[in-house]
Amino acid sequence: MTLVTLSDVLQPALKRGYAVAGLVTLGWEDMRAYVAAAEAENVPVILQAGPSCREHTPLPVLGKMFTYLAENVSVPVVAHLDHGYTLQDCKIAIESGFTSVMFDGSQKALAQNIDETAEIAQMAHAAGVSCEGEIGFVGYAGGANSAGTDPDEAAQFAKETGVDAMAISVGNVHLQQDKEGGLDEVRIRAIEAITEVPLVIHGGSGVPVAQREALARGSSICKFNIGTELRMAFGQALKEAAAADPDRFDRVQILKETHDPVVAAARRVLRAFKSV
């Protein structure tokens, strides 16, 4: 059994100079591949159930899937709720066996975000579960614009909420398909200078790999969320498998052929966050 909390994997990362990948799952095929990749690289992994995943599969089912996978590998696995928008979302996740919850109050006023995040962090900690919060808003490629994290507000948020990890907005964007951007390292340094909590980057697929490596080893950023990059790898593998034999209709056989390409893509992601 290697199911652990977010704090269990991020505190060692903070002390020893590496980061842990939060891999966004959509179903059995990708989460199984992510755990296989983590086992092959001998690193911890955070399996994340975001809103689109939860629309497709209920949290109680996802909790059992994550737990089963964790029980059958030797590396630490975190079962993480990504972008929970209400206390009820987080409560159901905790009751379903998740070991970490992320409450997203980033579009609310600062005081409300702090109050609601603190309440959820207290609930999570009482259950032996970690809590991640977000200060500043991370936008979406082709959608809502970001609002950068103010360092002083970040320090207040970290202190008053008691979160185990803090997601920040420093030039990162959700659903970005290229790596032509980059993070605002001046803002990152200003935030980490006055906070002690492990920092989190959402929208990590858009961050250049060299910058991922440098920040994983030389900053307080201990968690990078990666989704789009791996969805693209899965989608390409699925298209190739379906096109290989137009007469084939058994989805199990088709989906099996996505496994190795997604494992390979996930291993490339995981390597960038390892310690030197």
Rank of each mutant, 00 (worst) to 15 (best):
T149D: 08
I94N: 09
G84V: 00
D89M: 07
E95R: 13
R54W: 06
D89E: 09
D150E: 07
D89S: 06
E119C: 10
S146K: 04
T99D: 02
V170H: 07
D152E: 15
A167V: 00
I114Y: 02
G133H: 00
Y85G: 15
Q107A: 14
V170K: 07
L87Q: 15
T86N: 14
T161Y: 03
A109M: 13
G148W: 12
G171L: 00
I94C: 11
G148F: 14
V77I: 11
G97A: 12
G142P: 05
A127C: 09
H80C: 00
E132Q: 02
A155D: 00
G128F: 02
C53L: 15
G84F: 01
D152N: 14
T99G: 04
C131F: 05
A79Q: 05
I135A: 04
L110F: 11
A141N: 12
V75Y: 11
A141Q: 13
G50E: 07
D104M: 04
V78E: 04
T161P: 03
R54Q: 06
Y68C: 06
L87S: 15
Y68Q: 07
R54H: 07
A165N: 05
I120R: 06
A141C: 11
T57K: 03
V163G: 04
A147R: 14
Y140K: 11
V77T: 09
D104I: 05
V170E: 09
E153Q: 15
D152S: 14
Y140E: 13
N145D: 15
D82E: 10
F98P: 03
G162E: 08
G148T: 15
L69D: 05
E160T: 14
F66W: 05
D89F: 06
P58M: 02
S100H: 01
F157T: 06
A118C: 04
D152H: 15
N172F: 04
Q122S: 14
S146N: 07
E55G: 13
I92V: 13
I120Y: 09
T117F: 08
Q122C: 12
E134P: 02
I120E: 10
G142D: 03
H83P: 07
D150K: 06
S130C: 01
S100L: 01
E116V: 13
L110V: 09
V73M: 10
I94Y: 11
I168Y: 05
I120P: 09
G50S: 12
M65A: 11
S100E: 01
E132K: 00
A141W: 12
I94S: 09
G133E: 00
A121P: 04
E132Y: 00
Q48L: 10
G63K: 11
E160G: 11
G50N: 09
S96H: 07
E132H: 01
A147Y: 13
G148A: 15
G162L: 09
A79Y: 00
G128N: 04
A93S: 05
M65C: 10
P76R: 02
K91D: 15
L69F: 09
R54A: 04
C53S: 14
G105M: 02
S74K: 13
V101T: 08
L62A: 06
P60C: 12
G139V: 12
V163E: 01
E134D: 05
V61H: 06
N72L: 13
H83D: 02
V75A: 10
Y68D: 08
A154K: 01
A79M: 03
